[in-house]
Design a protein around this nucleic acid. Structure first.
Lengths: 345, 345
DNA sequence: TAGGCCCTGGACAACGTTGTCAGGTGAATG
DNA sequence: CATTCACCTGACAACGTTGTCCAGGGCCTA
């Protein structure tokens, strides 16, 4: 009764360790470890005693210590551009499914399209000793990853290629998709087609622009400077761009949008426009089929993108040592009406 | 030339440690630690030598070891229901912003609405020794968290309340929102109003149903059994439910949808229906304003939900010890047309 | 009954970092 | 010139776990 202070039980705010469990069960430390890890060589009776002690103390293995000892963390990191962008939801989920199937935990964060933040995040994940990384890059120089890769951190880039290093990459066919999208509009009689894309430092933005340019060139069409707008995808800016293209003496009769954020704004502007304008967007958007007209899009398969990247990552972790590969996932044109409008002028 | 094997540099696949850095810089281990952690008491010259060695070796601190020593991980876990659900995107992002502002990493995973998976995930995060947890619960019994909370893991529940334990909670006003949504339809002359909700084991589904019932009762309206459908939100099932409500001798003239997944399916069905039916959905959806008619919704503020929860979490981590609180975030009715249609029969 | 084998359990070191503390060097002061 | 003091630096233990290795005891066989 005198000295309850001699900590008979771990104090509040302190976690029990295997040592505590061992003491309570009256066994050795290693025996507890064996029970916790379901290793063979423990009598059923001993195991029961240990289990009871674990239960009673609320013991939970400290994985930090475990990692320190074992070297592997059974976790992978996913760095994406914007957690709130609906395009990344299915990708994120696909990666998580694969990670889960391999018994790994997924740690993720978003770079907000800022190269410094991307690097900071990636290095923080490396300091946590993730086994592998899946990165949707914001920057263009990933040499900072060299020591990590050399140290055995498997790395796969998705959606955009790595900069200045050679690494596994999984991409959507931005060029081909954009080309077929623009060709679709051309096939429906359009000659003056506008393009609104993301910032030119983003790889997919450049590729999509290139696809548009190629389709136009293949049809022998010139592109007026005023028809192309690249920059941030902030709604007001897109709104201005669309409005500008539709004004003037020679307005465009069709618009091709370079990504989903541009699409939603462009569709809003076009809905309010006095004359029908043909439209094709890159990336599918929810409810696109219910609008009037339905929105024709070049759909990317975000889930396949994520799944493919994650599987590549785990094959690396399982020991694959072949040269870095580049996988291109095809896109699909979904005609819903907006892309099939014929020029009115 | 004889024994290059005496590993002059760390081998491939092995990471340099502070010891390696110390050896190369010709200083003590602790000095390296001081430089890495920007602790005071190192000569500029010594610091430079250490920095060079770090650079040359590509050293990166092992945070697992650090955590083991320090006890805190500077990371929090977020367990949500479905990473691909657009509703959780902004929530996820808001949490990440707050975490980042506090210098913490965010680890997340989704439970896929499976209580066992939720528990598994939460405990895995605890084993990683996250400092805190934000949980969108799938299950109804969170007593398994008691040892964790006792051990000092701050825990906040969002979107749905915790089961059988007392914990901080941040909720949307599901009851009030649903009540005002149903009241809105009643105010526009509807008497026969259908409700399609999620599975009744989900708290928000029950609250929304209760809000609907309350509004009906307050208006002195009876609810026919056939007007209420609760269950999975799989498209075919919702489709059937809507179709059933619109058939028969006394079809509903308005429908209230219990969440965003129900809304998108219901809107599709109603668009194909021969007679206009009033509609209000819980949760906003993108492009709702562009549909014809625009979709009237009860909008939740997912970002505020996430931000509030994260801030509560960090105030706990900073030492707040007051009783668990329950915050209710108000919803907002956004009238866009579909909810203002008057009954046609 | 004795010898040997297998099975179980435990002592100990190591993983890479940080906190503690003591030693050592140089400048400033008496 | 001796002493004090401040400041830098490094040796050492500890965090909680797992791998290695050895000891002891029970059981089977000759």
């Amino acid at each position: 009764m005198a000295d309850t202070a001699r900590r008979p039980e771990p104090r509040y705010g302190t976690r029990p360790t295997m040592k505590d469990v061992a003491a309570r069960a009256g066994v050795g430390l290693k025996t507890v470890s064996r029970v916790v890890n379901a290793e063979p060589g423990v009598t059923p009776d001993t195991e029961r005693r240990v289990q009871e002690a674990i239960e009673a103390l609320g013991f939970r293995r400290n994985d930090s210590a475990r990692v320190l000892r074992k070297g592997r963390t059974a976790s992978i990191g996913l760095v994406l551009e914007d957690l709130a962008d609906p395009f990344y939801g299915p990708l994120n989920r696909a990666v998580e499914e694969v990670a889960r199937a391999h018994g790994a935990l997924l740690i993720n964060g978003s770079s907000a399209e800022d190269p410094d933040r991307e690097q900071e995040l990636v290095l923080a994940l490396c300091a946590r000793r993730v086994d592998g990384l899946i990165v949707i890059p914001a920057g263009h120089d990933h040499r900072y990853l060299e020591p990590e890769i050399k140290a055995g951190v498997a790395t796969v880039f998705v959606d955009r290629p790595a900069g200045r290093i050679d690494a596994d990459t999984v991409l959507s066919d931005s060029f081909g998709g954009a080309r077929s999208g623009a060709a679709h509009l051309i096939a429906h009689g359009h000659r003056r087609i506008g393009f609104i894309g993301d910032q030119p430092r983003i790889h997919t933005a450049i590729e999509r622009l290139r696809g548009y340019r190629t389709a136009m060139a293949e049809a022998g069409l010139e592109i007026h400077d005023d028809w192309v707008s690249l920059g941030t995808t902030a709604p007001e800016r897109v709104r201005e761009a669309v409005t500008a293209m539709l004004a003037g003496p020679e307005p465009v009769t069709a618009i091709f949008a370079g990504n989903n954020r541009v699409t939603v704004t462009a569709v809003r502007v076009l809905a309010a426009h006095h004359r029908p304008v043909a439209f094709v967007g890159f990336d599918d958007i929810e409810l696109a089929d219910l609008l009037d007209p339905g929105v024709t899009v070049i759909a990317q398969d975000a889930a396949t993108l994520g799944r493919t990247a994650a599987e590549r990552l785990f094959s690396r972790l399982d020991g694959a040592v072949d040269a870095p590969s580049r996988v291109v996932v095809p896109t699909r044109l979904i005609a819903r009406g907006s892309g099939e409008i014929r020029p009115s002028a």
